[in-house]
Design a protein around this nucleic acid. Structure first.
Length: 270
DNA sequence: AATTGATACAACCGCAGCGAA
DNA sequence: CTTCGCTGCGGTTGTATCAAT
């Protein structure tokens, strides 16, 4: 049983991506578009698994990714959407322009779970104060992965912490443009110039007409003039729209109509 | 200054869904 | 209808960085 691994792991790079790998991947996708992940690494000259390339692109290199701290509006939206959709991170991410499912998942696990618990919500997974029998779950597939390891125990221990410790983080580099990249399409209108030898200074962030791609000294600068610079942050209007949409859903939720909720969730997939 | 623990997030893993053959 | 391969998703792990001691 068991499928063959997505690719032979022999001789492939793993772990953090280097600026050179990022450049190779970006340039290849600029030229050939997304997709065909399996064959992409070879064609792009990367010693990476296709899956790894896809992940790197989707979560980090895509030009429409917005980096930077989650805003309070986004924060609230994530909580509301999670209460409706559960751990369907990709659906939630789909409603937060520029945010990736991985980012939202991480944010949920590192910030929101703790915060909800500190607010007395003992089960952030269901947003309930007390565990209730027969609670509905929007669980996807896996059911019995009994991987209780030290990490998990550690995480559980963390969740007992009474209050979130507030930390101030430097803003992560921001990618401007929300143009969706059509699959297998070229980047003609989305040219990115990456020069790893330039601007290795986080202080460059947001200054002049250039901004960082990536963090700290690992990545180069992108010339802002080469990009379609659109609002890096959803406008208040956008968020208000989303709020309205979900307030309506909350009304539905009040009626505890799971069928409707599920159909809504399905509609998001369209 | 060194060590230890906590935190954040990038990256990996394995499985399910889906379409093509 | 079945099989196979690719892609996408969510859970989990690894590790760099920061804070506390």
């Amino acid at each position: 049983m068991g499928r063959a691994p997505c690719c032979s792991k022999v001789g492939l790079h793993r772990g953090p991506w280097t600026p050179r790998e990022d450049t190779l991947l970006t340039k290849y996708i600029q030229a050939h578009g997304e997709g065909h992940w399996r064959s992409l690494p070879k064609k792009a000259g990367l010693l990476r698994c296709g899956k790894s390339c896809r992940l790197r692109w989707m979560n980090y290199l895509r030009p429409d990714i917005k980096r930077g701290n989650i805003t309070p509006d986004e924060d609230d939206l994530i909580i509301r959407m999670h209460s409706l959709l559960g751990n369907r991170w990709s659906l939630i991410a789909g409603r937060l322009p520029g945010r990736t499912d991985n980012e939202i998942k991480n944010y949920w696990n590192t910030h929101l779970v703790k915060r909800l618990r500190s607010q007395g919500i003992t089960d952030p997974g269901t947003h309930r104060k007390l565990a209730e029998p027969g609670e509905r779950e929007v669980k996807r597939r896996r059911s019995n992965k009994n991987t209780s390891n030290k990490k998990q125990n550690k995480s559980k221990a963390k969740l007992i912490l009474p209050a979130e410790k507030h930390k101030v983080h430097l803003p992560k580099p921001v990618r401007f443009t929300s143009l969706p990249l059509p699959r297998n399409d070229s980047f003609e209108s989305n040219t990115i110039t990456i020069s790893p030898s330039q601007g290795r200074d986080q202080g460059s962030f947001g200054t002049g007409d250039s901004f960082l791609v990536g963090d700290n000294d690992r990545y180069g600068l992108v010339n802002g003039s080469d990009l379609e610079c659109q609002s890096p942050v959803p406008t208040t209007n956008t968020l208000e729209k989303l709020y309205e949409e979900y307030l309506q859903l909350l009304e539905i939720d009040d009626r505890q109509d799971q069928v409707l909720l599920d159909s809504f969730a399905d509609s998001l997939l369209v």
